[in-house]
Amino acid sequence: MELVVSQLLTGLSIASILMLVALGLAVIYGVTGVINLAHGEFVMLGAYCAWFLQTEFGLGLIASLVPIFIVLALFGWIIEALVIRHLYNRPLDTILATWGIGVMAQQAVRLMAGGELRYVEMPAALSSSVNIFGATESAYRLFILGLALSLFALTWYIYRHTAFGLKLRAITQNRDIASSFGINSGRVYRATFAYGAGIAGLAGALVSPLKSVSPEMGTTYVVDAFMVVVLGGTQSLFGTVASSGILGELSGFLAFHSNDTIAKALVLLAIVILIRFRPQGLFAARVRT
């Protein structure tokens, strides 16, 4: 029992991080159709912001979350305005351009902050551990889980219940017709991109106390996040949550029986086999395209 619960919790913890990273990606891809390969670097920048705010200004992690979101959202805004805007009708090229941006971000950070590993301190209030059904789990990981779920809820609320979300959905269904009804799709795309980048920054800040912060950290996250999106299907936010849950638990389970690398390889194998039979992802909404 104890083992089962602790396994489940490990899986949930992996899943919550996956979800945080994948959420921004899924929002951007779902709405604009842009595959943002610089997403991992947004995560990395968020982690570095947390490190910077902590070492330079002594700001705790919780207090720095809002500034980090704003900084990264601004960054995303600028990137969209400078580069992405010109590539909406060349989807394959967005991959290339964002990849180039990612490389530049990585190298810029390496030049400015150095290539060595950085560490961010966990908030003192959350460094204890909690006992759940006999299994112990760190309070911080539970905090991440809670925050990931609330961010998802917020995103879902914006998407379903606000005027902005309505415009978003209209554009997703048919950009041209939405535009002809007076929706400024360019502005909506830019706001979406900024929001996705901001969430990525939050994800980076939140994982920074758990893993070491390095300029290369983005690559693994972006690959994992894409697996989530591929598995979940791109059109549904719930698909992202469900597939993060599945992948998290599966990785946790497989890693318990072998090691992290083998777990990752097996999960990828499972996804490759799955897309052969369900290319639209597990939870794709039935939409006409």
Partner: peptide, 18 residues
């Protein structure tokens, strides 16, 4: 697996990367 599943474009790119 990819092409029989009619995975194209960006998806195929991501899978090769992964």
């Amino acid at each position: 697996f990819m092409f029989r599943g009619r995975i194209t474009g960006v998806y195929a790119a991501i899978i090769t990367l992964a």
